[in-house]
Design a protein around this nucleic acid. Structure first.
Lengths: 140, 140
DNA sequence: ATAAAAATGGACTTCTTAAGTCCACTTTTT
DNA sequence: AAAAAGTGGACTTAAGAAGTCCATTTTTAT
C-alpha cells in the first residue's frame, strides 16, 4: 500500500508547472526536482497522453497545464499512474480466489477501495501546490 | 496502490478461524483456501507474533483467535502486512526528495494516508466474515 | 517410549513489476 | 542548417513480493 515514485514525481513536476507562467522544458523540471530526466520524459508523455498537460516541441518548447490546477484532482493522476482495476489481486484474476464472483469479502474490500478513491478525489493539484484558499473554506 | 496477496490471504484465513469452534491446522486452512501451505505458514507466524491469533503445537494443534473478531480491525492486519512508514517513498528516504523535512506536499499526502488508515480502521474482521449485525446499526 | 502430526525459524529462490536507460526520430526556433 | 526541444518504443536493472525448503521443537495418540 504505497504511492509509486512515478506518481510522486508527477505531482512534483505538475506543481512546478502551476508555479510557472511559461512552459517548462523537461531538463528544467528534471534538474530542479532531481528526477532522472529520461524517466521523467516517460512520465511527461503519460501526462500528455492523459490530457493533463500540453507540450510544444522545438526551441522554447516545454510543458504547460491545459486546465486550471484546482480542476485537476489527484485522482486523475492516480488513474494514470496506479493502474486501476487491481486494488485486490482477485479483482482481476480469479485464480487466487476460492470464491469467484461476488463474495462478502469483496464487497467490503470495494468499500475500502472507494474510501481510498474518495481521498484522492478530494485533493486538487492546487492544494498540492500550497495555493488553496483554505481560509475561505474554513470561515464557512 | 494495491493490497498485497499476504494481507488478503491473512483475512481469508482469519475468517476461517472466526467460523470455527476448534483450532484449525495450517493444512486445513491452506487446502480449504487454496493457499500454498509453506507460504501460509509464514503468514500465520506473522499473525502469531502480531498477537492476532494463538497457536498450539503437536497433534490436535492449530490456530485460533485470541480476541473476538469484532475487536480486530483490518488496520491491525494492515500494520502487520503492509509495512507502515513508507506510504510515500520520501517518508522514510529523503534521497528522493528535494525538500526534506515538512513541505506542503507531504502534509497533503499525510492527509490522504490518514484517510486510508481510517478506512482500514473502520472495518472489523467480523464484518469481513459477513457476520456484522448491520441491521442494528442501520435502524438507528 | 516412540511415531506421527503439528507449529517454528530462518535462509533461500523465483517472479513480477517498478524504476530507470537508450536511441533513433520528429518538430520548432534562431 | 544547427541546436534544442519533445516522442515512441524497446530494453535493462533492481527491489520486493511471493513462494520454497529444511532442520528443529512441541504435543498427542498408540
Amino acid at each position: 500500500m504505497q504511492i509509486s515514485r512515478s506518481l510522486e514525481y508527477a505531482v512534483r513536476s505538475l506543481v512546478c508547472l502551476v508555479n510557472s507562467k511559461e512552459p517548462l522544458s523537461l531538463k528544467r523540471i528534471a534538474s530542479g526536482e532531481k528526477i532522472p530526466s529520461p524517466y521523467l520524459a516517460k512520465i511527461m508523455r503519460t501526462l500528455v497522453n492523459g490530457k493533463i498537460v500540453c507540450s510544444t516541441r522545438g526551441r522554447k518548447g516545454g510543458y504547460f497545464l491545459l486546465i486550471p490546477p484546482e480542476e485537476i484532482a489527484l485522482y486523475d493522476l492516480y488513474l494514470l499512474f496506479e493502474k486501476k482495476d487491481k486494488f485486490l489481486p482477485c479483482f482481476e484474476d480469479n485464480s487466487y480466489c476460492p470464491t469467484p464472483g461476488k463474495c462478502v469479502r469483496k464487497v467490503v474490500w470495494y468499500k475500502i477501495e472507494n474510501a481510498v478513491i474518495k481521498a484522492f478525489k478530494n485533493v486538487s493539484l492546487q492544494e498540492m501546490a500550497g495555493k488553496n484558499n483554505l481560509s475561505g473554506k474554513a470561515k464557512k
